[in-house]
Simulated scan of single mutants.
Amino acid sequence: MAEEKKGFSHDTIERNTLLLVVLILITVSIGGLVQIVPLFTIESTIEKVDGVRPHSPLELAGFNIYVREGCYNCHSQQIRPFRDEVERYGHYSLAAESMYDRPFQWSSKRTGPDLARVGGKYSNDWQVAHLVDPRAVVPESIMPGYAWMKDRPLKYDDIQTHLKTLKVLGSPYTDEQIANAKADLEAQKNPDGDVAAFQKRYPKAVVANFTGNKQVTEMDALVAYLQMLGTLVDFTKYQSPKQLQQ
């Protein structure tokens, strides 16, 4: 019988725990470098899309409440490029739409509908009624109510600092937007005021007294955020989902 060849085999690796760990680390490091290094050779990994802007101060406050309440656990903001998805929810999601969200809300689960295109789909009054008592407008809903938000004052004394911090992280807030952060937040709640400068700084932002309260409430902020979702981009300029499936 021929003598068994001795050498570096799988058996040797699998019996030597330290060697196995070292080789795994080397393999993972090489794979990671192959994926990461090319990213430094391009200007951006996200295609720039016309219309996308950072959140207005009131929308930003609403986004923070949305995250705080864990809305992403039941509602994703990610429409996949599949026929059933786009026929129900609208144009598939573009990465650029979420480029200023920290954290992004694409998620991986839907207990309720996807909200990527919910902006403008319902009236402000409907959104408020739904948040106060979901089953009043959607009888089969299992969503909890958030009636307390309607009268809970929004805390926004630090909104200017918040915008400054996001600018450091890459959101393109201008010095003018930062300086007017508090005034812009209040302007979006007051449709009877002079909102021309605000709307110039934040195109397509919905200006309304969402709850009817004189003070700015948490529900005002949340509805302002929801009514913006999916409204910033002109999707006629982009390839339709049906073309992707041909």
Results as ranks from 00 to 15, higher is better:
D101N: 15
S93I: 01
Q127G: 03
P113D: 12
S76R: 07
D175V: 00
V137P: 10
Y156F: 14
K167L: 03
W106V: 12
H130Q: 13
S98Q: 14
S107T: 10
D125F: 11
K164Q: 15
D157T: 03
G120M: 07
D114T: 09
K121V: 14
G170W: 05
Y92A: 01
M99I: 09
S108F: 04
S93V: 01
I159G: 01
T174A: 01
A96L: 02
K167R: 15
P172K: 07
A147L: 04
L131G: 04
A116I: 13
P134I: 02
R88N: 05
G119F: 07
P172M: 10
Y100A: 12
A95Q: 08
D125Q: 14
Y89F: 11
R80W: 02
P134H: 06
A95R: 11
S107K: 09
M149I: 00
A96Q: 06
P139V: 10
P103I: 09
D175L: 05
I142H: 11
P144F: 10
R135N: 13
P153K: 00
D175P: 02
Y122H: 15
R80L: 13
D175K: 05
H130Y: 15
S98R: 11
V118T: 13
P103D: 10
V137F: 08
T174Q: 06
Y122I: 03
E85Q: 08
S93A: 05
P139H: 13
Q78W: 10
D158S: 07
S93W: 02
I142T: 11
P144T: 01
Q105H: 06
G90S: 08
G120D: 03
A96E: 08
V137H: 06
L94M: 11
E87L: 08
D125Y: 12
V168F: 14
S171K: 11
Y146C: 02
G119S: 07
V86C: 08
K121Y: 14
S76Q: 13
R135F: 09
R135Y: 05
W148V: 04
D151S: 09
E87P: 08
G170I: 01
G145E: 01
A129C: 06
N124D: 12
K150L: 12
M99L: 10
A136M: 04
F82G: 00
G112I: 12
T161L: 13
A136W: 03
P144R: 03
A95H: 09
D151F: 07
R135Q: 15
Q78V: 03
Q78S: 08
L163R: 02
Y122C: 12
P144M: 05
Y146V: 02
A116G: 00
V137L: 14
G170N: 09
R117P: 04
W106F: 08
S108K: 02
H91P: 09
L163M: 09
A96P: 02
P134M: 04
A116R: 08
Q105R: 15
S141L: 14
P134T: 06
P172N: 09
D133G: 06
V138W: 04
T174S: 15
Y92E: 01
I142Y: 14
K167Y: 01
Q77G: 05
H162T: 15
T111L: 13
D151I: 09
K167A: 14
N124G: 11
V132P: 14
S98K: 11
L163W: 01
L115Y: 07
Y156R: 02
W126F: 15
V128H: 06
G170S: 06
P153F: 04
P103V: 10
T165G: 04
K150A: 10
Q127T: 12
